[in-house]
Design a protein around this nucleic acid. Structure first.
Length: 270
DNA sequence: ATTATATCCTGATCGC
DNA sequence: TGCGATCAGGATATAA
């Protein structure tokens, strides 16, 4: 499940491979994708590859007069992958949904579950959820406190809300709360200043550390060259129901909040 | 404002 | 070996 660290891993891997390349052809293999190849002019050059939350943004804007803004936006959702292959073109891959032929190499959008999205946009206003990026300098304990204020929602599902913070998903939400020693069921607005500081610190710290290890591969995630992330071995609670807590040895508990699994240690998170 | 539920979708897993 | 049921969850939509 690609969350912020996994998306950041893909973006950092793709940027040097894609920037400066020209798009020769866009092939759409999955009609479910709302993508019209005719909207992508031939030989557009890739200017920049970056991230907004969990969205991958490939900037195809043409400078000059008149300016022609254009972005290819990719959200991997559950099982999506953006795979770069060197020339010559690789044999067709299972679950291939779109292929972007470049002047050197191909970019493949592969996605077994077909939840992922790929869109061509000429305007990014309103294209993404409005939450704050937890790696941005604006993400401070005070900013987090402002966001949390008044909310009676349990903190774990609150962390998944992309209109508050962008980029967190089910794995890191549980891990962050364990690291911050906060019970997942606590109402978001009830966190003490000290808990908010811990939540802020561990959110930053965990995401940065996960990026250092190129993300978490629980089952599906692969980077732009098909490699797994290496952060899974550092997970303390996610996917470890009934296994001993790495801090206190008592069994890790799984609960369901808003239809999603939450993992925690009831003894350590009080 | 928040919660629950359904939807999308398919591979993996489980019980029989 | 196979078959159907269930689960996984990011995001959105709708109802309560």
């Amino acid at each position: 499940m690609p969350e912020l660290p996994e998306v950041e891993t893909v973006v950092r891997g793709l940027a040097p491979l894609l920037v400066g390349r020209k798009v020769r052809k866009l092939e759409v293999l999955d009609p479910k994708l709302d993508l019209h190849p005719s909207r992508l002019p031939r030989n557009r050059m890739i200017r920049r590859v970056h991230r907004h939350g969990k969205e991958i943004i490939i900037d195809l804007s043409q400078r000059g007069k008149p300016q022609k803004p254009l972005w290819l936006c990719v959200h991997l959702r559950m099982t999506g992958k953006l795979i770069w292959t060197p020339p010559p073109s690789a044999p067709p891959e299972r679950h291939l949904r779109a292929r972007i032929a470049l002047d050197r190499g191909d970019l493949l959008f592969v996605d077994a579950r077909r939840f992922g999205t790929m869109r061509l946009m000429s305007d990014l206003a309103g294209a993404f959820p409005p939450g704050l990026d937890p790696l941005a300098p604006e993400f401070t304990p005070a900013a987090l406190a402002d966001l949390l204020e008044q909310s009676i929602q349990a903190i774990k599902p609150w962390l998944l809300r992309q209109d508050r913070l962008i980029g967190l998903g089910n794995i890191y939400a549980s891990e962050i709360l364990f690291a911050a020693k906060i019970p997942p069921t606590r109402p978001a607005g009830s966190l003490t200043p000290d808990e908010i500081r811990r939540l802020h610190r561990h959110t930053r710290h965990l995401l940065e550390r996960a990026i250092k290890y190129c993300g978490t591969t629980f089952s599906d995630f692969r980077d732009e060259r098909g490699r797994s992330g290496r952060f899974r071995r550092f997970l303390k609670v996610y996917g470890r129901e009934d296994d001993p807590c790495r801090r206190c040895g008592r069994p890790v508990q799984r609960l369901v909040q808003q239809g999603r699994s939450t993992f925690c240690c009831p003894a350590c998170q009080k």
